[in-house]
Amino acid sequence: MNVFRLTGDLSHLVAIILLLLKIWKTRSCAGISGKSQVMFALVFTTRYLDLFTNFISPYNSVMKVIYLGCSYATVYMIYMKFKASYDGNHDTFRAEFLIIPVGGLAFLVNHEFTPLEILWTFSIYLESVAILPQLFMITKTGEAETITTHYLFALGLYRALYLINWIWRYYFEGFFDLIAIVAGCVQTILYCDFFYLYITKVLHGKKLSLPA
């Protein structure tokens, strides 16, 4: 464990909690893409199947349970509890155009052709594109609530910190996982234009609005 991975995990945790609180406090999931949240729940489900079979550390197990619990709670709140506020008309990204190619790629490019490893690879590839429906929704609505931009910033920052973690681990441990690194680069690159808008607008007290 190194400081970049730890801060990355904490940034990820902050993002997940921020979103949960936003929906719970405002009792509304306006501006939130349910499709992205379903994909994140799928990412955690397929990645943490080894929760009971492969014990790494108390920290690792606790975080996995928190991620799984929060992601399902978020999906539940979007599609059931606060369903009336779900903005389905703007959440129109075709998720199957992501899940099917990612599923196929996981079969073709993986470390080991076993069910658990293919599902893990699927979760890594899916996570790299899971935010697309959310970013697409923001372009369709032309704006995002400030709390939602903080959520997205923390979420984008987490994988950027993981990229530094992988440089650190390669240099100090000789460890590298090309699948995770390539997918992590794609994932972080997808946030670049959001990062630019966040830093130039939201951090200057402006609302994030796109030229519709």
Binding site: H12, R47, I56, N60, H111, Y162, D177, I179
Partner: peptide, 10 residues
């Protein structure tokens, strides 16, 4: 390269 005893990252 990838560690045999499974993935240790979240």
């Amino acid at each position: 390269q990838w560690n045999q005893q499974g993935h240790d990252e979240l």
